[in-house]
């Protein structure tokens, strides 16, 4: 995963209020790092006329007021930021490491996936059985170890309010990949840990969904009624650039943490962290261990 020095960007007008910027056609950590670095800098510049800045996996989008800022001027600003970031002047981002407890193979997603078996590639097993098999794991347990063992980058927050897309921080040949359901479900339990393509996610609200379902977290991640002290006024817990480490938990701990959450006293483990792309690229596995240590030394 060496730095891509010939990085290109494709600027496209989305009518008169949006500019869409594709940094890479395929998902790479480099493209995501550029997206987050450019958008963080753009936000800090507070350019008059820029309304919203949305980083995504390998692209980003800016909403602007063309009466205050022309498309051409906006593109100049974005190109100059990309040059700065791509010239390798920027190799670190300030972020945080977050531990997400997960009850894998839980009864609620199990009940749901059984209801929608006719929309799945393999109606004979569970989503976990299928994902473990097609990714070459001998057992569901080993697969869960892989999913909960590595750190993940929150590469985008969205689809619906507060849903994090997470990109696995391991060399590409070891990344988990699973297709989406053949036809989307009409139901997914709230806080389901899902998987589609090369992305893991956490459903922030109950509703339709096409990702495979692996488990459920007791940790509230979206708080529209303002009852969770660990979530600020934005109502949303995750930010693009957060680093997530899942931790497999049992039913007893799940029940205890859920009771905490319902009483408004859930305390997630969150540690400030400086991510260094070059350090990571030199030794991804060593870096994963360091992320774990950071969480537990804290």
């Amino acid at each position: 995963m060496s730095a891509d020095k010939t990085a290109t960007a494709r600027y496209s007008l989305a009518a008169d209020e949006f500019m869409f910027v594709e940094l890479s056609e395929e998902m790479t950590l480099e493209a995501f790092f550029r997206s987050i670095s450019i958008t963080q800098r753009l936000k800090a510049m507070s350019v008059p006329g820029i309304i919203e800045i949305c980083p995504a996996n390998a692209s980003y989008q800016v909403r602007y007021d063309p009466d205050q800022l022309s498309a051409a001027s906006l593109q100049e600003v974005l190109e100059s930021l990309d040059r700065e970031v791509s010239a390798q002047q920027v190799r670190t981002i300030e972020t945080r490491v977050i531990e997400v407890p997960v009850l894998y193979n839980d009864p609620w997603t199990h009940e749901t996936l059984m209801r929608f078996r006719d929309r799945h590639q393999d109606p004979s097993g569970t989503d976990l059985d299928y994902a473990a098999r097609i990714n070459g794991y001998d057992s569901v347990e080993e697969f869960i170890e892989a999913h909960s063992g590595s750190p993940w980058f929150v590469s985008m927050v969205g689809f619906v309010a507060g849903l994090p897309f997470m990109y696995q921080m391991v060399p590409r040949e070891r990344q988990i990949q699973v297709p989406k359901y053949l036809r989307p479900r009409t139901d997914t339990p709230k806080q389901t840990v899902g998987y589609g393509g090369c992305f893991s996610c956490i459903y922030s609200v109950r509703g339709a969904g096409g990702y495979q379902m692996f488990g459920v977290t007791p940790m509230p991640i979206y708080d529209p009624s303002d009852q969770q002290p660990h979530i600020d006024d934005s109502m949303i817990f995750f930010r693009p650039g957060d680093i997530v480490k899942h931790r497999a938990i049992g039913r007893d701990e799940y029940d205890r943490l859920l009771a905490d959450a319902e009483a408004g006293r859930f305390e997630p483990r969150v540690v400030p962290f400086t991510f260094d792309l070059d350090d990571f690229n030199r030794d991804p596995d060593g870096y994963a261990s360091r992320v774990k240590e950071v969480l537990h030394d804290h």
Binding site: F18, M27, S59, M156, F159, P179, G197, C198
Partner: peptide, 21 residues
Amino acid sequence: PPFGAGDDPSNIVDACYPIGS
């Protein structure tokens, strides 16, 4: 298909959707 995009020819690596797109 580019890595991470999905197999359908209409798929892209998940990105932001402009209002009106």
